[in-house]
Structures are given as C-alpha cells and as structure tokens.
Nucleic acid binder design. Structure first.
Lengths: 219, 219
DNA sequence: CTCTACCTTAAGAAAACCTAAAGAATTTGG
DNA sequence: CCAAATTCTTTAGGTTTTCTTAAGGTAGAG
C-alpha cells in the first residue's frame, strides 16, 4: 500500500512515516501543498494523508483540485481538534475521513486500512448538520470548537436525529433507536436524554420539540 | 443500531458482542441457524453478522431464505480465510460483504458501520393544493411565503382535507382522522379546529363549509 | 319567521413536556 | 473481585401548550 503524507512539520511527518512503514506501507512525503498536488496527480498513491495547513497551496485547494480532475484517491484529513469547521469544509470538498490531533497511531492505521480497502459501501464516518458534527467513530459531538463525548444511548438518539435532520423523528423512532423496537421506556427517560443532548449541543433552539409527535433538528 | 450476531461458538460470540456493545450498538445473539432465521425474519435488526457454519440451519440457507422473503437486512459473512469458496457462494446468495478470520475489531466495526449506513432516509413528502403546501415531515403548512406549524390534531385534519381536496370530507371522516373511528367528540370541538385551520391557511374562502355534511377545500 | 347548523371567543381542563435530584444499574480501573 | 465512576432510570413538582367546553351570536333553509 502506498501512502502519500502531505505534512510540512518535519516532526509530524517523520512520526507518520515511521508508523506507516512499520505497518508495511510505502510512504511518500510532500513537504508543501504544491508537492502534494503534484504527487497526488500521479494517481499512484492508494491513500492520501492531508494536513490542511500547508505552505504554498492549502489543503482545501488540494482536495478541490484533485476531485475536479477526477482523482478519487481516498483522502484523510489530519487536523487539530479545535478546527472542526475546517474539517467540515474539507469533507464537503470531497475528503473521505478525518482524524483530530492528538490521535493514537493504531487509530490512524485502522483508518488508512479502512480507506484503502474501499469498503463496498463507502462510509463517511461523520454526520453533519448546520455547525454540528457527529463523529460516528468516537461518538463525539463537535460544535463550533466545543467537543463533548456522547454516551451510548445519547449517540443512538443523536444519530437518528441527524440522519433525519429537518424532519420530525417520532417518539417511537427515537425509542427504537435507543432501546430497540417496541421497548417499554418510561416517558421521562426520553425527556432526560433530550435534555442531555440539548445541553451538549449548546444551542437549545436547534433540537426542537414537536409536541405529541417527536423531536426535530432544525436551524 | 441493532446488530444480529449469528455465531454458535460462545467465545467468538462473546467477543463480537462486547466489541459491538462498546461501539454503541445493541446486540442480539443467535446461537444456531434456526434462531438466526427467526430473529432475522423480524426485520428489527439493522445488520446481520453471519457465521456460515451454524448448527441446525447453515448460513447459506439463512441468506437464501431471508432474501426470498424480501428481507433486505444488510448481511456480513464472517468466515475462515481458507473458505473463500463459501464466501463467494454466500455473496452470490445475497450477502453484502464478508470478513475473514482473523480480523481486527476496528475493521469489523468499520464494516458494520458501512453497512448500517444504508438506512432509508425518509423521503420528503408533501401534499399540495392550489398555493397550499403541507409538509408531512415537519407538520408545517406553507402558503405564499407564510409558514405555520400545525398541532397534532390540526395536522391530522388538514392531511385528510388535502388528500381529498376538491371533494367534501364528512364530519365523521374528519373525526375519524383526528380522534379515531367512532370517537365521541363534542361538535363544538370540530368548529374550533376548523377555525384554527382557516386562520392558519390565511384565506378563509379556501376551506368551505358543506352545511350539515362536512367541509371541503376548494378554490 | 323559526329552526338548525354553524361561528366565535375565552376560560378551564387535560395532556405533554421540562427540570432537578436521587437511586439503580453498569462499566471501569485498581 | 471490589470500589469508584459513569450511565441510566425513576420520580415528583412545576411549566407550557393543546384541547375541550360552553355561552352567546350569526346565517341559511324551509
């Protein structure tokens, strides 16, 4: 497997290179955006690891150009945790996945492996709505710089709400998502979870109640 | 996300269950083929993890039967590396993906995630009449730029009126739509709701009275 | 003209929802 | 295996929205 690492900071680039080599990949390093674009265009790499802040040509431009040129090489954004807006933009431009620093090396390797296998159904590992971003790998909810971890049930509810963002998700659908079909859940329990989600979302306006029907994510 | 694990070897089943639970899925274990078939038929699972060599009913039969019964639940075959022929046969019968033992847990999770992402996204569904537009996903009524939210009962009444727009909807039909068949509703109640609807529609001419019969949406 | 069906309004009842806090059940870490 | 921490569930009291009722008025049919 050949991996292109687009990273200008020498220490980071070195770290990534070693880890990938150890896992049996061959690695090509681009030290600035222009180099990254050049190497990416050859199409000989199986995966691209892309830092967004590169000298000369930034990461967004790189993704955009490559995708415009019909290059479909799977691309993984490597970004700082507090730059989630950038990540969203990158994914919109056609990146396939992302990873926030700091990260564990084995997580990085797993992502690279997953991307390079070109899963039968390409799976974005995130769900986005407005400035919300739900990471389905880590179960973290990001919003304008803030990050909160969701519990199992919170995540299950948030996931279905985000999948159907804009339309009402009925009580039954929520209960099915969180506890299984036809589960007998005390009504108060759902209220409590909605409350937790609202707190973690930050803006209570975003998760609205549709009285006696369900809840809906709406701007 | 609900995952059905069809696996007879207790250690393997346990391992899978833990990993899936940790990743936030709810898990149902079938210990033999007959159980797997039974659980699979309910259609309540989002993904099936299927060992091919199960007691009583083997994995091939399970896929075949489920597909014959129009169950489209995404199914992932878990198989030993040296049984690739079996895998091919399984895929031919309608399985969606496969995984060979031994495998990394995060790969398994990535595949499950990939498959489960096929959840049907609710289709946008609208009812239109003249310049009225009723959004059945959000329960909103739009008219010439204006938007008003309908309560549960208002929506139920408006829905039946729009579906039969142009023809008279009887009192009984309206009551059935709003409160259930044969419900005992004070006549004044219906008047009040019709009034609310007229107010939200904007133009009172549009929702006309069919004296001693019912109401009708008409230009 | 009169009767019946309908309209309007407003207030009270009921249902649905929110919040906080405590107890139960799990999970995690030593 | 136990203790601590986290997550989940229940409960109770308070708030808001929706629904229902009732009373007084209007309008069309006979």
């Amino acid at each position: 497997m050949k991996v292109l690492v687009a990273e200008d900071k020498p220490m980071m680039a070195d770290l990534l290179t070693r880890a990938l080599r150890r896992a049996g990949h061959s690695v090509l390093v681009a030290h600035d955006g222009e180099e990254a674009l050049e190497f990416g265009r050859t199409g000989e790499c199986d995966v691209i690891l892309l830092d967004l802040m590169l000298p000369r040509v930034d990461g967004f431009t790189i993704i955009q150009r490559l995708r415009a040129e019909r290059m479909t090489t799977p691309t993984l954004i490597v970004s700082a945790r507090d730059g989630m807006d950038d990540v969203v933009r990158g994914l919109d431009l056609g990146a396939d996945d992302y990873l926030t620093k700091p990260f564990a090396l084995d997580v990085l390797l797993a992502r690279v492996r997953a991307l390079s296998r070109r899963l039968p159904v390409s799976a974005p590992s995130h769900l986005a709505f407005q400035d919300l971003l739900l990471d389905t790998n880590t179960h973290e909810l990001h919003r304008s710089g803030r990050t909160s971890a969701l519990t199992r049930t919170e995540f299950a509810l948030m996931e279905v709400l985000m999948r159907r963002a804009g339309s009402i998700v009925s009580h039954e659908a929520l209960i099915e998502a969180g506890w299984g079909f036809g589960a007998d859940v005390n009504e108060g329990t759902l209220y409590v979870f909605i409350r937790m989600l609202r707190a973690k979302i930050g803006d209570p306006q975003l998760l609205q109640t549709a009285r006696s029907v369900g809840y809906v994510l709406r701007p």
